[in-house]
Structures are given as structure tokens and as C-alpha cells.
Amino acid sequence: MKNNVKIIRITQSITQQQLAKRVGVTRQTIGLIEKGEYNPSLQLCIAIAKELNKTLNDLFWEVK
């Protein structure tokens, strides 16, 4: 699933490692989500959205 997590994370100057630690997953999982190679659970999507101060729409809704 394509998404905006990487772009938004970089604009906020947060590393993969920092985001991973804050949402309670591994750095690899964040990398996989950003590459669209892993579809996170709704719970994790919400945790990421909260950490990045964005809505689920901003991060995950129909990214082209």
C-alpha cells in the first residue's frame, strides 16, 4: 500500500529509528511500511498518525 509516511516523516526531521521507538515497532517495520511492502494494522496506523500529527487520510488515503 503506497503512503505518505516517508515524506511526512522527513519533513518533520524524524528518523525511522525515532518513529519506530515512539510507536513501539522495529525500524525495519517502519521501512517496510514506507516502501509499501507491509500493510500495518489500524492500531499502528493510528499510532503513526498521532506521532506525526497527521490524520489517517493525510498518511494513507489513496496515494498515487
Binding site: G24, V25, T26, Q28, T29, L32, S41
Partner: peptide, 8 residues
């Protein structure tokens, strides 16, 4: 038996 990380 399972790890905490959801992907793993």
C-alpha cells in the same frame, strides 16, 4: 512464542 513487533 511471538515477538512484540507486529510485522515480525
Amino acid at each position: 512464542l511471538l515477538p512484540n513487533d507486529e510485522y515480525k
